Simulated assay, not measured.
Amino acid sequence: MLDVRRLHMLKTVAVRGSITAAAQSLELSAGAVSQQLAALRHDVAVDLLRPDGRTVALTEAGRVLLEHADRILAAMEEAECAVAAVKGTVGATATLAALPSTVARIVGPALTALGADHPQLAVTCLITDQAQMRELTLGTVDVVLGQRYHHLPDSTPKGIAVSPLLDDPLLVVTAHHGAAIGSDGQPVGLRELAPHHIVVPPPTTDCGQAILHACQQAGFTPTTRYVTADIAAQLDLARAGLATALVPQTAIAPATPGIRTAPIKDHPIQRLLFAATRHTETTNPTTAAVIAALRLAARQDRITHVPPT
């Protein structure tokens, strides 16, 4: 009989690309992982992995076995959710992966509410913008607070359920003492930014692509003297009058000093913030509680901090 733990190791190696990376993820030694995979290979009497440069790749038999492993692992999680649903109580632990730009106004309030409503639940929060969905599919996190910009196609992996939280528009951010663009919070035409130096995230990021796409739709290519994905740095550059920034509304504290914000009136740029979990037919009370807290925090934030008009 196949060992489920070994199947999970095979999946982890396939996703991580190497035994060493998989071992680090699983908090095991590379030797222990290799030993378990050798035992799995003995069980099925066929090679499952092959060298691929400095990494490893699945053989055809490995790909077939992984397809079945995915269904087996999903069935096990379904069983766990069904038992949890019968118990009807929120569990003791959960892991949330969230974007740095959502911490202050969504994640923080949500975790505070969870602590009050479910004091027995200890939530580990990973603040990262890297490979969140991959970690979700591997089971290293339970809930992802992620984003998708509206100009990009939906690339949600198979087996992942997504719950929309809110549409989060990018605002034009300038120095409070600077030029009249966006004065009094009046909407700004994106074309008005053509003469300005704009600080943007790298073009390899979703946000960087979204800004470039919108500017091109407005008829110009932005002059990008400053390139950084660090929103705090973007705000600092705007505050200093060195650049104009385009920053998600949720990432800007309402009382941030020294800056002025304005919405974009003609070519809006916005991201969808969502909560994602592994799909199960039966709702898991623990992940449901985390998502409910995120949804409530997002709703309250949007009610409390009305966009400038």
Rank of each mutant, 00 (worst) to 15 (best):
Q249H: 13
P202I: 03
G53S: 05
L242I: 00
L58G: 00
A79G: 14
P203I: 02
A218G: 09
G31L: 00
A180G: 15
A298M: 01
G258A: 12
T282L: 02
T261E: 05
I181S: 01
R271W: 02
M9D: 14
D52C: 09
Q234A: 10
R148H: 04
P100M: 05
A110M: 02
Q217L: 11
T280I: 00
P202Q: 04
L121V: 02
V44M: 06
R54L: 05
V107D: 09
E77M: 06
C81G: 03
S183F: 13
T59K: 06
P153A: 08
I160V: 15
Q35C: 03
A293R: 02
K87V: 11
H196R: 15
D236Q: 14
L65E: 09
V33S: 08
C125K: 08
V64P: 00
A289S: 07
R302H: 03
I160D: 01
V15E: 15
A255R: 12
L193E: 01
V173E: 04
Q270W: 07
I127V: 15
L246T: 04
P109T: 09
Q186W: 00
V290G: 09
V4N: 11
I198T: 06
G182F: 05
T277K: 10
A245G: 11
T128E: 12
P153G: 02
V141S: 10
V290S: 10
A175M: 06
A292Y: 08
